[in-house]
């Protein structure tokens, strides 16, 4: 059973009288516990596609099934609930909440989205901070840590409520190459540890090599079917 299944999926934005086709009839399947990249130049439709998979947007046509749910049928509230329980997000700009400590940022989904009991919550947050190597920075504020560290915290936040799927739209675009590489290694390690599917997007060809399967996007269309990096797949 696949985790995400898109059939003839399209998304067209309407700006006044002009129609902007951002995603044009794509078909793809994402398997559980895979490590997938959508790659393409700026404007190719990566964010649009990830927003659709992340239940942040509705398709214009075609079907998109995420964890057996037809995305088109979810209303605002249901979509929020669905995201809160099944999907983790990592953002290009990290988007940590500035008034919360590292610990509290990771705790946030367990407190304000789901309602875990305090003791369980604490154990889970510590476990994730440990896993991303940020346990010793737990009491710092976001503005006291580096970009790479922020993204580690963001990854911990995305994983803390044990989602099936983590979406990362250009997670490394604001990081230098070494840091970007280490963040991707961390994501992969997390996938290995928690069996969570990671889907990320990038316009950086150097980064795309880190994915185990890659979809190339151009003008809203998939250029090739999933290209599997055999060596990486075997490693998984």
């Amino acid at each position: 059973m696949s985790l995400v299944r898109a059939q003839h999926l399209s998304k067209t934005y309407r700006v006044g009288d002009i129609e902007v086709p951002a995603v044009r009839g794509v078909d793809f399947v994402i398997e559980p516990a895979s490590f997938v990249a959508f790659v393409g130049p700026s404007g190719s439709g990566k964010s649009t596609l990830l927003n659709l998979i992340g239940c942040l947007d509705h398709p214009t046509s075609g079907t998109l099934t995420v964890l057996d749910a037809d995305i088109a049928t979810l209303d605002r509230r249901a979509a929020a609930r669905f995201r809160g329980s099944h999907i983790g997000f990592v953002f290009q700009d990290f988007n940590l909440i500035p008034v919360l400590t590292v610990f509290e940022n990771v705790e946030y989904p367990l407190r304000m989205v789901q309602e875990w009991p305090a003791a369980k919550r604490r154990a889970q947050v510590l476990r994730l901070l440990e896993a991303v190597g940020m346990a010793d920075q737990a009491d710092k504020r976001p503005d006291q840590i580096s970009g790479g560290q922020k993204q580690r915290v963001a990854i911990a936040r995305a994983l803390v409520s044990q989602p099936k799927l983590v979406l990362a739209d250009e997670p490394t675009a604001n990081l230098d190459h070494d840091t970007a590489y280490r963040v991707l290694q961390l994501m992969k390690k997390m996938r290995d540890e928690f069996r969570t599917t990671f889907v990320f997007s990038t316009h950086d060809p150097k980064i795309m090599g880190e994915a185990e399967s890659t979809f190339i996007l151009e003008d809203g269309q998939l250029l090739s079917a999933a290209h599997h990096n055999a060596a990486e797949a075997a490693h998984a």
Binding site: G54, R77, R81, R83, N95, I97, P98, P109, M112, V113
Partner: peptide, 16 residues
């Protein structure tokens, strides 16, 4: 606004 976008994206209920 971006903070609100973030917490909304990760599933914070509108009421909260």
């Amino acid at each position: 606004i971006r903070e609100i976008g973030t917490i909304a994206a990760i599933g914070t209920p509108p009421g909260r």
